[in-house]
Design a protein around this nucleic acid. Structure first.
Lengths: 198, 198, 198, 198
DNA sequence: CATGAATGAGATTTCATTCAT
DNA sequence: AATGAATGAAATCTCATTCAT
């Protein structure tokens, strides 16, 4: 990348960080371009030089988020022989991601059910697929290390996803309390690995 | 109720049904009052005679939904000694409710995190609490019938909620396929009652 | 008048009284037909049987008000030889009228400057002219009793009008206090009869 | 002020002038934002960039009006030893102000009696108080120059206000004629300084 | 290249009036 | 005769996007 391209990329990421901060505190629709521009100390026009619109900001932010998540998963959950620890860490990383990106994740859900044909979504889909693939590899490794699951990888991932997203929603509607994160993670562990029935 | 009041109640429910149909197909914000009025073959003004605004329509619809859900739960899950069957039915009823009302449920999530002080929300909260109480009674009964849970009722309900809402989200972002409902219900059963690990 | 006509006239006056009560507490535009109908315990349709619309209610109310004012003026200010007392009473009656009808008087002002062609306004104009004529007769009588004015009747009436309406406005914008009526009347006396300069 | 701020201030004043023109010809409620935008050759949205809403336009316009009035009063009525001339000029300036801003003044009256708690009104109240203070200083000066009033400053100002506002109303309901201004001013002088009785 | 003023479609809401029952 | 459900025009306000400077 040339210097120009690097600078541009740097600025995009910076705007993305600013936007993420806003998206974390209120739903997508309630964050205005004005607000992002102001918080990033840029003119609104400049935002449109960097991104084609509000949607693309969202896509950029969420893709970077998934990238980082994947990097962390790879580093911390793949290639270790301590499977229980890896799975525990897996839940933590996923939970933290969904908690931070909750508003964007939900916006994406709506988007997907509305404009099913969108070039933007494809970028997210690709990134998302990499995430899924990575999870599969982690589970596969767990199996080779002797862990036994009652479900196939597909189902396993769906269950994982559901449990975490569900807790994310619960967290959005309940006033945040102390140790909610720890409680949630414990509950998650119970749901997924231990089972609810004694 | 007088005839007038009955008629008014009917019309409100009718408009509610029409609105629910729209809310099922797109997010709350994308359904306009114009649209509801048109689909109900009413003038916009008439809607405002029946409801104080868009929010109240949502509240009416969702409260009726929870009412019906509670009635069904009471009839089909409470007071039977076939506990496994009751719990299975419980999941089905909850799943169907959340699938149908997904957009409204999510709208409510946002609402709750924004306008934390709203007379409307109180009505929903009351209704929601009844729902929670009913679930507690069902679990309590299950315990008296000999079923043993690893968690207390509070946690149990949170886990149930999370799992179902999570699947609801998954369903919203994936194109609907054949037997998705059956697959989801099976997965739900596994997650909650059987556990994922063999 | 037949019995039917009498009843109708009675009801119109009743509705008028109800409406006046509302108009006394808020501006014309903020009083809705719904409100009047409800307070009069009549259906909205019935209102439209009695009056051709909201404007006509206003006209009816204000005309009756001027009629009553004229009757009182005639009884209490005309034909007495105690001129100072008559003029004092005159101010009181006018002041009380304008204070009670302030919102309607102002609405009429706007109406007059907008829709200069209106059959309704003619009725008010006629009534208003009778009021003016009566005032002229009172002043004329005062002159024959020896009172001397620096202005002709036209100007006198205009000054009287201005002073009272001005106080009416002041009263509308200031929070009501004790003896505001007495203070206003004293000020009015000073302005008009005594003069402000010592 | 930076160039940007200056330009913005200019635009606000320009819009204010346009709005005042409209407010002078019809009551506040009958002037729509669309209308103002069209007359100012701006989009509706631009208006909302400059002002937070219709009310703020009114406040801006009226505050500027009072400011200008105060400036003129200070220049022309304060610090001259020709007291009669100063008082005459005072009446002229006040009369012209109230005649020009009549609709806004009346709108304010209603506003004050309705929404007694409004940040907007505070701005007007402050401005209005400065106006009152200035009038007091002028009357105080007149007294030091030997003029004697029958009333204290408070009452004097109330009387002045009443007389002018009253004439303002009269002028609003009567079709404008030649020399109405001169006649009104003469009447005002008579009412306030000379007295009506010979 | 950066800017932010300008835009205008589209949303919610109000209410005088009509008219079928 | 009485009713009040239905209407729809018109108002205010928001905000993603464009474009002249």
């Amino acid at each position: 990348m040339s210097r120009k391209e690097l600078e541009r990329s740097f600025r995009k990421d910076f705007v993305g960080d600013v936007a993420l901060e806003l998206f974390s505190s209120k739903p997508f629709e309630r964050v205005s371009m004005d607000e992002i521009a102001q918080k990033a100390e840029l003119g609104k026009g400049t935002l449109y030089k960097l991104f084609s619109g509000k949607e693309e900001i969202m896509v950029h932010v969420i893709c970077r988020g998934i990238e980082n998540l994947c990097r962390d998963l790879e580093e911390q959950c793949l290639g270790t022989s301590d499977v229980p620890q890896a799975l525990k860490r897996l839940l933590e990383l996923e939970y933290d991601f969904y908690t931070k990106y909750s508003n964007l994740v939900l916006k994406l859900v709506f988007h997907q059910s509305d404009n099913s044909e969108s070039a933007f979504l494809d970028r997210v889909r690709v990134q998302h697929q990499q995430h899924i693939d990575l999870l599969e590899r982690i589970f596969e490794q767990a199996r080779t290390e002797g862990m036994q699951f009652r479900l196939d990888n597909q189902e396993l991932i769906q269950a994982l996803n559901a449990a975490i997203k569900g807790l994310m929603i619960n967290r959005m509607e309940q006033p945040i309390q102390d140790n909610s994160r720890e409680k949630d993670l414990e509950l998650l562990n119970t749901m997924l690995w231990t089972g609810l029935l004694a």
